[in-house]
């Protein structure tokens, strides 16, 4: 086959038009990065504090409940409180189990395409908003270490699926009321909503969409993959909503379990 090479190259430089200012926007462009930064900072501070607490993460048979915080599930440390232990434990780990567990969901969110957009804007100001100058003299994006590591996102997605299964089991077990049988309490609803939102967040992920069928050249030759891709694509369009909703709810779930476990709140039985 005859071939043709591109010969024209980019000419750099040339005078740009417009004034030499960082931006000419008149709207409140700073509001979104400020709100994002505030929420993500608050979540990081709270989850770090909660991870080091290593108590009040489980509501057990003493009050006829089986509720565990998502930050501490599966409880795999040596000294997990009675009833909260997973079938397997990390022998010799006497610190908070949350320190082991949170690596995976946090890694999933840290490398998530949506959160990347948010924290690159809010924290790194690269750029803080559209058509507002970024705050750096040079820029290499995600081509070098450490940001090239964002490409491991799909592996955190796989790990996230494992945690979703475990948290779904926790949600089912939350219907158990030791000594009383089965029932539904506010805690049951909280754990179920948390598990549902985490599934929606994971299944709407861009890596999931790619793995389901986005990677094929031809949908017509991969009917099942096309069908899967069509199922997750509408979820993908709402990935941002699921990202925020699941972030709030996972923190609220921990707060709720913590309050009930510490005795500050009673888990109200619905039926």
């Amino acid at each position: 086959m005859a071939v043709m090479e591109s010969s024209t190259s980019v000419v750099l430089g040339g005078t740009r038009g417009g004034p030499s200012v960082t931006h000419l926007r008149k709207d409140r462009w700073w509001l979104q990065p400020v709100v994002t930064m505030s929420i993500l900072t608050a979540f990081v501070i709270y989850s770090t504090w909660a991870a080091f607490q290593n108590r009040y993460y489980y509501v057990g048979a003493g009050v006829h409940r089986d509720l565990i915080s998502p930050f501490y599930s599966p409880c795999i440390a040596d000294d997990c409180v009675s009833g909260s232990k997973a079938g397997w434990h990390f022998s010799g780990w006497s610190l908070s189990p949350a320190l082991l567990i949170l690596i995976f969901p946090l890694g999933f969110r840290l490398t998530c395409y949506y959160y990347r957009r948010s924290y690159y804007r809010a924290f790194w100001w690269s750029p803080p908003a559209c058509a507002v100058a970024d705050a750096h003299g040079t820029y290499t994006g995600e081509t070098r270490f450490p940001l090239i590591m964002q490409n491991v996102h799909r592996y955190f997605f796989y790990a996230g699926l494992v945690f979703n299964v475990l948290l779904t089991i926790d949600a089912v077990e939350a219907f158990r009321e030791p000594g009383l049988g089965w029932g539904v309490s506010v805690g049951t609803i909280v754990l179920c909503v948390n598990a549902a939102l985490l599934w929606l967040y994971s299944l709407s992920c861009h890596a999931c969409r790619h793995l389901c069928g986005g990677h094929v050249k031809s949908f017509s030759q991969h009917k099942i993959r096309h069908r899967l891709w069509k199922l997750v694509t509408p979820l993908n369009a709402k990935h941002m909503n699921f990202a925020w909703a699941s972030l709030f709810v996972v923190a609220l779930t921990d707060v709720y379990v913590r309050l009930v476990a510490s005795g500050a709140l009673t888990d109200y039985k619905l039926f």
Partner: peptide, 15 residues
């Protein structure tokens, strides 16, 4: 082609 330079801030989609 520098695909890795894009940090997905979605301004292209916005405009």
């Amino acid at each position: 082609m520098g695909l890795g330079y894009c940090n997905i801030t979605k301004c292209c989609t916005e405009v």
